[in-house]
Amino acid sequence: SHFELRVGTITLHFDNISEELAEELEKLAKNGVHADEIRRWWEEWLK
């Protein structure tokens, strides 16, 4: 499923992401983690 995450002024787009993972990314964003860090985390997870 597709997921969009708003982090400050940036909107990150994720394809084929589980609800659980989407929730984890939302938690990171709410805790003030920068969009670049979240994207890096996601790319690492995909490997």
Rank of each mutant, 00 (worst) to 15 (best):
S1Q: 14
S1A: 09
S1N: 15
S1L: 15
S1P: 15
S1M: 15
H2C: 08
F3K: 03
E4R: 01
E4A: 00
L5G: 02
L5S: 01
R6D: 10
R6A: 15
R6N: 15
R6T: 15
R6P: 07
R6I: 15
V7E: 01
V7W: 05
V7N: 01
G8Y: 04
G8K: 01
G8A: 02
G8N: 02
T9S: 14
T9K: 07
I10F: 00
I10L: 06
I10V: 13
I10N: 03
T11Q: 03
T11M: 06
T11N: 03
T11F: 06
L12T: 00
H13N: 05
H13M: 08
H13F: 10
F14T: 00
F14L: 03
F14E: 00
F14Q: 00
F14D: 00
D15Y: 15
D15H: 14
D15I: 08
D15R: 04
N16Y: 10
N16P: 04
I17L: 05
I17A: 04
S18V: 04
S18M: 03
S18G: 08
S18Q: 04
S18K: 03
S18D: 07
E19M: 13
E19T: 14
E19K: 15
E19V: 14
E19Q: 14
E19H: 13
L21R: 04
L21Q: 11
L21T: 11
A22K: 15
A22Q: 15
A22D: 01
E23R: 15
E23T: 13
E23D: 12
E23P: 02
E23I: 15
E23L: 14
E24R: 13
E24K: 14
L25W: 02
L25F: 08
L25I: 07
E26H: 15
E26W: 07
E26L: 15
E26A: 12
K27H: 10
K27T: 11
L28W: 10
L28M: 15
A29Y: 03
A29P: 02
K30Q: 13
K30A: 13
K30V: 10
K30I: 10
N31V: 10
N31P: 06
N31D: 09
G32D: 06
G32E: 06
V33T: 11
V33L: 15
V33Y: 15
H34G: 15
H34S: 15
H34A: 12
H34Q: 13
A35W: 07
A35Q: 06
A35D: 03
D36Y: 02
E37P: 03
E37S: 08
E37F: 07
I38H: 01
I38R: 01
I38D: 01
R39K: 11
R39S: 11
R40F: 09
R40S: 10
R40D: 09
R40I: 10
W41G: 02
W41P: 00
W41L: 11
W41E: 04
W41Q: 10
W41T: 12
W42S: 06
W42E: 02
W42A: 13
E43S: 07
E43R: 09
E43Q: 11
E44F: 05
E44W: 09
E44Y: 09
W45K: 10
L46M: 14
L46N: 11
L46P: 05
L46A: 10
L46C: 08
K47Y: 08
K47L: 08
K47A: 11
